[in-house]
């Protein structure tokens, strides 16, 4: 049995795990840092600290993590657990561990023309690692983020969004957002969208689960 989202009927809490996946240096940690800093600056949002298990430089070694309270839905407290995976190829074993029990995935793709092969490799790697946990892409909610679009202004060669859609999203045809994690463009749009999609799925499934239970 794979434990996915947790619904605690006594404490009235729903916990959901969202993982940011993608090749090295595509901006997964930057996404999380942006969300974290923005939430920290809003006093009413009481967040735990952002945990980063990284190398002494700035490369993620294991994961970054922080929990977000999203408020109430149908009387339940909604808790979102945000994770990133290490992007570098050599951290295969830890990347696989982070995917355990995932409910929703944001695939952060690098828009730099030179990184298109890395995007495709990482996407294939994601499928393999999900199948390691006996899940397929259709079991989880997934969206794409085309990151680093802001570099266009600096005349750095980027791949067209249409082309990225074709190479990565033609099979799934799921939602995608052009974004800039550094400046924050569409960072919240991405997380809001995946949270909403995942929560809806979890609520649907828990209703179904309850109906299926004996007595």
């Amino acid at each position: 049995m794979i434990l996915m989202a947790i619904v605690n009927l006594k404490e009235k809490v729903i916990q959901i795990k969202i993982v940011y996946y993608g090749p090295g240096r595509s901006g997964k940690t930057t996404n999380l840092e942006y969300i974290f800093n923005r939430l920290q600056s809003q006093k009413e949002q009481n967040t735990s600290k952002l945990v980063s298990i990284d190398t002494k430089g700035d490369r993620t070694l294991f994961f970054d993590f922080f929990p977000v309270n999203l408020g109430k839905i149908n009387g339940f407290d909604l808790k979102l657990q945000l994770y990133t995976t290490p992007g570098q190829v050599k951290y295969e074993s830890t990347r696989r561990l982070v995917l355990k029990g995932v409910d929703g995935i944001v695939f952060v793709a690098d828009s730099l023309s030179s990184r298109q092969d890395a995007n495709i490799d990482s996407f294939e790697n994601l499928k393999n690692n999900l199948s390691y946990h006996n899940i397929s892409l259709s079991d989880v909610k997934m969206i794409f983020q085309w990151n680093k679009r802001d570099l266009q202004e600096q005349n750095i060669p980027l791949t067209d969004i249409e082309q990225m859609e074709t190479s990565l999203n033609s099979e799934l045809q799921t939602q995608s957002f052009p974004a800039s994690a550094v400046s924050g463009t569409n960072v919240f749009k991405t997380v809001n969208y995946i949270a909403k999609q995942t929560v809806e799925k979890v609520i649907d499934m828990s209703v179904v689960n309850q109906k299926q239970r004996p007595n």
Binding site: L3, I6, K17, S48, V51, I53, F62, F65, P67, Q81
Partner: peptide, 27 residues
């Protein structure tokens, strides 16, 4: 906690950040 790091139950007097403790312990 489950093996995915989801906190299931906590109990005790101290005030630890239990969510993060669960995640790091599972990891």
């Amino acid at each position: 906690t489950d093996m995915g790091g989801n906190l299931l139950f906590k109990m005790g007097e101290e005030n630890f950040d239990s969510d993060t403790l669960a995640v790091l312990s599972a990891a």
